[in-house]
Simulated scan of single mutants.
Amino acid sequence: MKISDVPFAVLRLQYRAARVPLQFVEQQLVARLHNESPARLIYERSLGALDVTVGNLLNAPDIAERGAALADRSEALRLAAELDAEAGAEVREAGQEFKARQEEATKQRQNAQATKQKTVQESRQQAEARKRDAAKNAADRVTAVKERVDKAASQRTGAVENAKQTEQANITKAEKTVTKAAQAKLDDAADKRGEATAIRKDADRLDELADVEKEKRRQARTAKTN
């Protein structure tokens, strides 16, 4: 070891000693928190940034790499948690929108039914009124008037049925559009959940790589000491 490296070595030892209380806090308190807890992520990210800064200043690559791995892992978990939250919000929003559109479609269907019944009833009432009026006329006009009334009633009923079919087709089209939009949001939410899972796996791999690298360095130091 060069004489110029002595101050850095001393400082590295002092930093490792100063970091012992932080490791105690991490093991006894932070480790009990959920992996994606905001408090834990903030603590780990801050501790990782501190290790990176000190490691670079003291020429200690192992400290800097450990800090970078910890910071990267916490950032990856934070991103995964945000994606999960966004996916859940989109699922809830899609469900609420789908329910609202279903209710609107049901209301339109009920209105169409009510309109049809009202129109049929009015047509029948008008037909009956015409029949009564026709009965008061001369006998030679009764048959002709009745035929015209029946024909008019038939035409009105056909018009109502056509209107009902058109309305039903519009409602069915609207329901399909709502279902498609809701499914698209559900698919997007599933994609985000998949992306969050992939990010978690990457974070775990980073953690494992950091552990392997620490073990290699420990073995190297042990071998050098021996």
Rank of each mutant, 00 (worst) to 15 (best):
E86V: 12
R45V: 00
R66F: 05
Y43S: 06
G194E: 14
E65P: 07
A174H: 01
L47N: 07
E44A: 02
A203Y: 01
V142P: 08
Q155F: 05
S46I: 06
Q165L: 09
D207C: 06
A203L: 00
D72P: 05
K99Y: 15
S46E: 10
E82H: 08
Q28T: 11
A85M: 10
Q183N: 10
Q121W: 01
P38S: 01
L11H: 13
K99G: 12
A190K: 13
A68H: 12
R40W: 05
K99S: 14
V54I: 07
E26I: 04
D51G: 13
E36G: 04
L58T: 01
D51L: 13
G67R: 06
D188S: 09
R205P: 02
E161M: 05
E195R: 11
N170P: 05
A220V: 11
D202F: 07
V142N: 15
Y43E: 07
Q126N: 15
A135P: 01
A210I: 01
K216P: 09
R12D: 00
N137P: 07
Q14D: 09
Y15N: 04
E213V: 09
E97W: 08
K180G: 04
R73F: 05
P7W: 09
E215P: 00
E161V: 03
N137T: 14
A87K: 06
Q121P: 05
Y43N: 06
G55P: 02
V6Y: 00
T143C: 15
E128C: 01
A85F: 02
A163W: 00
T172R: 15
K173I: 04
P38I: 02
D150H: 05
A49E: 08
P7H: 05
A169E: 10
A9S: 08
A139R: 12
Q155H: 11
N111W: 14
A18E: 01
A181E: 03
R101A: 15
V54S: 02
A184H: 02
V91Q: 10
K214I: 08
D150L: 07
Q183D: 13
V160N: 09
A184G: 01
A184E: 04
A198E: 14
D72V: 07
A71K: 09
A49M: 09
